[in-house]
Structures are given as structure tokens and as C-alpha cells.
């Protein structure tokens, strides 16, 4: 029994020995799973900014998991002040099923409440041996592709939509040709992983495939990490606008008394300082000065929105990714 109490005492001591004791304010940011380092850096910048502005110190807690899981957790009572996701649909759910934010949440901050964005790009092996330049190179018989599964991964849905955008641009109203192109592309995929990180592992660690299809930010990250040019990024001429939406969660910030803090936390993402930091993490940003500085890393391209390609997210999910939808039909064609 004595040991037991000792154990509890030690545990409690360890728990309470954490920081947070000293901060005046606290904020909980729920985010997608690969954004940890990004927000670890941004939080330092923001803490300084908030202290300069108000004199208060602030402790920012981070929660990271897949953004659909995070949305579920918030609906079930995870009292997050802000959500910084990589899927617009996952924020919509907070309104549709949770009633926690107003329907027009996207209009509350500039650029559709997406302070940074990315697009879908290709990663090829050293010297680009298969000479991959654009989407039509991907359907050649000698090219093997690696991407996650559009059924389970948002990342892969983006790639699917980006390819669809290219096909629509190229073939216009010829639905048969568009379908053929999409079906050819899917049939070139050698491995469908369940998530984006898994696909990266397949391509990099297992050495499978000629082209990895994923976010431009991930493509640039990998190219940077292997400094020796083992991998090269290729940005196609047409691609998809992948937004990274943010919102404060009205019901919870009211309960937590963090309205101003949460709002400022998100608004400051649009500041020049934060935008430069985001660009450093290989995301595309809106600030003109920072854009200019990074012009060579982010080549100009034609970005199509979800509305142009599939008439909005709801429609896209229903027509393309639902069971028996377009994706299933295309995969059955061969």
C-alpha cells in the first residue's frame, strides 16, 4: 500500500511539474498529424507577438492526429480553441454535425480562411530517368506510380481531383476521354497506401515506383532532406488548389474565454513574419513580399479549385468517392 501511494505521489508530482504554471493564458490548437514542427515554430513566433501586444504570456498546447479524427474528437467534446486542418470537409463537419461554428466560417478570414495552401506535385528519382513533366506522362505504360488510396486518404483525393482538373482542361467536354485518362492513370498505380506518410515510405524506403504523387510541400520536404539530388520535384502545369483551412471554435472559445486570443492566433498566420515561416515549410502563401522572395521555389501554375473541378466538396465526395461512385467505376474499367 505504501508503494502505491508513493507511486501516485510521484505520478502527480511529474504531472504537475510541467510548465504552463507560469503562463497567463492557454490555447489549444488541434491540427493534422504532420504539422507538428510547423506549429511548434509558429507558436514561438506568436507567443512573442502576443506578449508584445498585450503583455500576457501564453501557453499553446498542440494536439495532432488525422484531421478527420480530430474533427470527431472536437464534436465529442475535445475543447479545442482553434482547428488548423488540411481538409475543408473536416471543418464543415464541425458545423454540420457539431453545431459548434457558424456555416459561414470560411468567410471570417481572408482567402477562404486558408492562410496557406499547397498543390499536388510529383517526386521523381535522380535525373528524372522517365522524363516526367506533366500529367500525360503518368499514363505511359513504362511508368509506375505511388500514391495513397483515395478511399482513405485526403491527400490522394486531392491528387485524383488534380488529375481530373488536367483531364477536363485537356479534353474539354469529351467525358469518354476524361474517363479513359483517369482509368489509365489509376491503373498505373503500383501501390495504394492508406495514408500520405505511408506512400512516402513506400517510395523512399522501399524504392518502389517511378513517381510519388503527393502534396508539393511533402515533395519539396523530401527533396530537401536528401540534399544529394536523389529525388527531384516536378510541378505540373495544371494542378489543384489544396487549401489548409483554419477556424476558431465558437462554442469552446466562449466557454474558455479565449475569443480574442484564438482569433489573433489565426489572424497572425497572415502576417509577413508568419507567412515567411510557412513558406520555409514549403507551403505556398498569399503575402506578396514573401511570394516574391520564393518565386523560384514555387513555379507559377494554373490552380483549379474544387468548385471548378467537381462543383464543391459535397458534390465531389458524393459523385467521385462514395461507394459505387466514379472512382469505383473507373477502377473497374480495366
Amino acid at each position: 500500500m505504501k508503494h502505491l501511494f508513493k507511486g501516485i505521489a510521484v505520478g502527480a508530482a511529474l504531472l504537475s511539474a510541467q510548465p504552463a504554471l507560469s503562463a497567463d493564458r492557454e490555447l489549444l490548437n488541434t491540427s493534422y498529424d504532420i504539422a507538428r514542427e510547423l506549429f511548434a515554430s509558429y507558436n514561438e513566433v506568436f507567443k512573442e507577438h502576443w506578449q508584445e501586444k498585450t503583455g500576457e504570456t501564453v501557453e499553446i498546447k498542440q494536439s495532432h492526429a488525422g484531421s478527420s479524427k480530430q474533427a470527431q474528437a472536437i464534436i465529442q467534446g475535445l475543447k479545442a480553441d482553434v482547428a488548423t486542418f488540411n481538409q475543408v470537409t473536416d471543418i464543415n463537419i464541425l458545423h454540420d454535425r457539431g453545431g459548434l461554428i457558424p456555416e459561414n466560417w470560411a468567410d471570417r478570414l481572408p482567402n477562404n480562411s486558408s492562410p496557406y495552401y499547397s498543390t499536388m506535385a510529383f517526386l521523381v528519382r535522380e535525373g528524372n530517368p522517365k522524363n516526367i513533366q506533366n500529367w500525360d506522362d503518368l499514363v505511359r505504360e513504362d511508368v509506375d506510380l505511388v500514391m495513397p488510396n483515395p478511399k482513405t486518404s485526403g491527400n490522394a483525393r486531392y491528387t485524383y481531383l488534380a488529375a481530373l482538373g488536367y483531364a477536363q482542361e485537356t479534353y474539354g467536354d469529351d467525358q469518354e476521354k476524361i474517363d479513359q485518362f483517369m482509368s489509365d492513370l489509376l491503373s498505373r498505380v503500383k501501390v495504394f497506401d492508406s495514408g500520405g506518410r505511408g506512400a512516402t515510405t513506400t517510395f523512399v524506403e522501399r524504392g518502389i515506383g517511378d513517381v510519388l504523387l503527393t502534396f508539393e510541400s511533402e515533395v519539396l520536404n523530401i527533396a530537401d532532406r536528401f540534399d544529394n539530388g536523389e529525388y527531384q520535384p516536378v510541378t505540373p502545369k495544371v494542378s489543384f488548389l489544396a487549401e489548409f483551412p483554419v477556424t476558431w471554435i465558437d462554442d469552446y472559445v466562449e466557454q474558455n474565454g479565449t475569443q480574442e486570443l484564438a482569433k489573433e492566433y489565426l489572424e497572425y498566420l497572415y502576417s509577413e513574419e508568419a507567412q515567411r515561416l510557412l513558406a520555409g515549410f514549403n507551403y505556398r502563401v498569399h503575402n506578396d513580399v514573401v511570394k516574391e522572395e520564393n518565386a523560384d521555389r514555387f513555379p507559377a501554375l494554373q490552380l483549379k479549385t474544387i468548385d471548378e473541378i467537381a462543383g464543391g466538396w459535397e458534390n465531389a465526395m458524393e459523385t467521385h468517392f462514395a461507394s459505387g461512385g466514379k472512382l469505383d467505376q473507373l477502377q473497374r474499367r480495366r
Partner: peptide, 12 residues
Amino acid sequence: LHAIGLTLFVAA
């Protein structure tokens, strides 16, 4: 360290 503390606390 916090994760270790929490894990021991939960077990305790």
C-alpha cells in the same frame, strides 16, 4: 517526461 509521468500515473 510528461508522457512517462502520465503513463505511470494512469497505471498507478
